[in-house]
């Protein structure tokens, strides 16, 4: 489903002279359809960089990211056009960042509704019903549905973020520390949601800090150690 070969990302910063910052180096892994891969490793080792390369927020410096797309067949994400990537983001590949990027004056429920409407073209009413059920499952109090998430606690924001990521059941879901700001009970709810998604066929790549949790949920673990340079 997804195969990463010799992926490296180096940032070339050209302000006030030039600097090189290594994001990640020589990353290799393979995930089959419906598998759950966890990425473990100390901070600053480039775990997020890998996910951002797959989502093409970063342009890989070298290496290949092969993905078997439903829409386009097998392709190399490192090489595809921006338009193809936009289509994959709307129809196949989801990404849940570490922190919710709040869009000014968009309510929590509308943030969650957006991706499913983009994918399925269902009506606002239908999308809202699905979103409400999901937020209810995540134990977000009903009075917050139509509020702006900028005022939410870190945990509530992260739940909205996860709801946004899982509502449209993407084929591939990339998660950057999905449970970092959650308490034990919320973590359990989120893991249950991810497991349901996995059972329905979603391939998951997730970054975790909690080794125990990772070994509990994943089929494969990728360990990244300090980089050599």
């Amino acid at each position: 489903m997804l195969e990463v070969i010799n992926l490296s990302k180096i940032f070339y910063i050209k302000i006030n002279g030039s600097k090189e910052v290594v994001g990640c180096q020589d990353i290799n892994f393979k995930v089959n359809k419906g598998e759950f891969l966890s990425i473990l490793g100390p901070s600053g080792v480039g775990k997020s960089t890998i996910l951002k390369c797959i989502y093409r927020t970063y342009i890989p410096t070298s290496g290949d990211i092969y993905y078997e797309s439903l829409l386009f067949g097998k392709l190399n994400i490192a090489k595809i056009s921006d338009r193809t990537m936009i289509a994959l983001r709307e129809k196949e590949i989801g990404y849940v960042s570490q922190f919710l990027r709040v869009i000014p004056r968009v309510t929590a429920i509308d943030l969650v509704i957006e991706p499913i409407m983009k994918k399925n073209g269902i009506s606002y009413k239908e999308a809202r019903d699905i979103a409400e059920e999901l937020l209810f499952k995540l134990k977000i109090p009903k009075y917050l549905f139509d509020a702006y998430p900028s005022t939410f606690s870190g945990g509530e924001q992260q739940k909205v973020n996860i709801a946004r990521g899982v509502i449209w059941k993407p084929r591939v879901l990339l998660l950057d520390e999905p449970t970092a700001s959650l308490d034990i009970e919320s973590t359990k709810i989120v893991i249950d949601l991810l497991m349901t998604l996995k059972e329905e066929g979603t391939t998951i790549v997730a970054i975790f800090h909690d080794e125990k949790l990772a070994s509990l949920v994943s089929d494969k673990i990728l360990r990244i150690s300090g980089r050599s340079i």
Partner: peptide, 10 residues
């Protein structure tokens, strides 16, 4: 030229 998040983050 690129995806907006790529232009802003990379």
């Amino acid at each position: 030229a690129g995806l907006t998040d790529q232009i802003l983050e990379d």
